[in-house]
Each structure stands twice: as C-alpha cells, then as structure tokens.
Amino acid sequence: MKKDKELTFIRDKDISLDSAVTFKNVSFFYEKERPCLKNISFDIKRGEFISIIGHNGSGKSTLSKLIDGILAQNEGDIYIFGVKMQDNNAIQLRKDIALVFQNPDSQFIGATCRDDIAFGLENMQVKQEDMEEIIDDCLRKVGMEEYKDAEPANLSGGQKQRIAIASALARKPKILILDEASAMLDPKGKKEIEDIIFERKKEDKDLTIINITHEIDETINSDRVLVLSKGNLVMSDTPNKVFSNDEFLTSIHLSLPFDHLLVKELNKLGYEIEYDDHEGLIEKICR
C-alpha cells in the first residue's frame, strides 16, 4: 500500500520537464453516445498563458474540471507536471491548481471575505497563526483590503469574483484556471478581473494561467489559443494564426475579434488589407 502511494508521484519520463498540464487522448462522456470531450491531446508549458475558447456547450468547463480532478476522464491520461493523475492522487495534485468559476454567488463559501479566503487555507492545513498574513496579502493583490469583514450580500458581482480570485491565490497555485470567471460581470468588473490577471502574470512568470472564455477579445494577449468545438480540439496556435482562419471560426459559431471583422468587411469592399497588429491596421487604413 505504501509503496503504491509513493509510486503515484513519480514523473512520467515521456512527458517533457517543462510541462504543466498534459492531456493524452482524453475522452469524457456521461453517455457514451454523446461525448462531451473526444480524444483530446495537448501540452501546456510551465508559465504559459493559455486561452481556451469555444461556444457554449463545447466542453470548455468539462475540461477545467478534468484538469482539477473534480471529474475523472473515461479514456486517456492526464498529467500534472508530468505526474499521471490517478484516483488516489487527485487530491494531492490539486494542491498546485486553483480554479475560479463563473457564478460569483455559488463560489462564495465563507460568511465574510476573510472567512472565504480562510476556507481554502483551512483545507490546506495552514497554521492558524500564518493565516492572517496570507489573507491580508491576497486581499491586497485584488484590491479588496477594505472589505475584509464584508458579507457577500453587500458585495457586487465583480467584488465577489475578486474575492474568489484572492481565495484562489491564497492557495499559492502553480496553475490558475479561470473558467469564464468574468462572463457574468459588467464591463467594469470584467476590466478589473483582466487587470488582476495581467498583474499576476507580470509578477509571477512561473504561474501557468488557463483562461477559459467565449469572448474572443479576451484571448488576444495570450501566448496560445486552444479552440474547442463540439467536444473536439480543433485548433491550437498563436492568437493571430487562429484569427486568420476566419471562415473556419465562423463555421464553429465563434466570431472574430473586432479588428479582424473590420478587415473582413474592408476586403469585401475591395480593399486588400492584411492584418498584423492594431497599429499596423490603423496605418494601412489611413494611408
């Protein structure tokens, strides 16, 4: 039994050393005839900023729960930092991962902001005397220092999501997954979440961020975009390369970022413009 336990934390030598999350032919289904995810394989590197996009019902959220071991795949293997996920080590592997969900209300667990952050710390068996400092630090990171004792009923959706991120950061994750974390927020809330993530990325180069979203404009700054459609991984490339494939994106019910849409319209009117970046586009139009 003990030997078994040790074995489960050995890195698989086939997986490269800088991998954070690796999927090998993973499938997931509730009913076999209607799989949510079909034969998915990808490799996310340490410190990468990945966006995963897809329309509603494409299997994005299932993917995040698989990475976190909340759901177990039916076929294939999942590796976290090269360690194969199994029944007996999912809870251990989860310690390096933090997941922020969509609904601000149903992920607020504590009675107040500080209790909510403390919940995760209690689970990690952090010593009581160390908690206060971590809580203060995390509240500062999301700009919510003044709301330490606030109750969820008195917070806006955006503020609750900031607390959810603080609670996630308190766990000192190596992988941070945002599963449509700003989908239910107003533009101000969305911007705040975006800024916090940007800030985190700048300060902690080693942090792997996986942003799952259906808003294409959010993906522009990421290192790589994975595109899901009907449970299939249909694309995995840099944002610009993905967006240049506009007909395909439209066919899987995703719209292009604003600039690309405009280029398309201009092309229709007979202008031959190719998109490199935003400034370039402005130049080209004005020329």
Binding site: E265, L269, I282, C286
Partner: peptide
C-alpha cells in the same frame, strides 16, 4: 490620424467600413 469620418453614419462594423470607403 486625419481621416475625416462622420461618426453619425457609424452604427456597426459594416457601416464603419462603408464610411471608411
């Protein structure tokens, strides 16, 4: 940048493209 667009004509992306045109 000096392009004399009339914003009153712009409602969405196609109308923006037309105005540029």
């Amino acid at each position: 940048k000096g392009l004399p667009l009339n914003v009153e004509n712009i409602f969405d992306i196609p109308s923006l493209a037309k105005e540029i045109d």
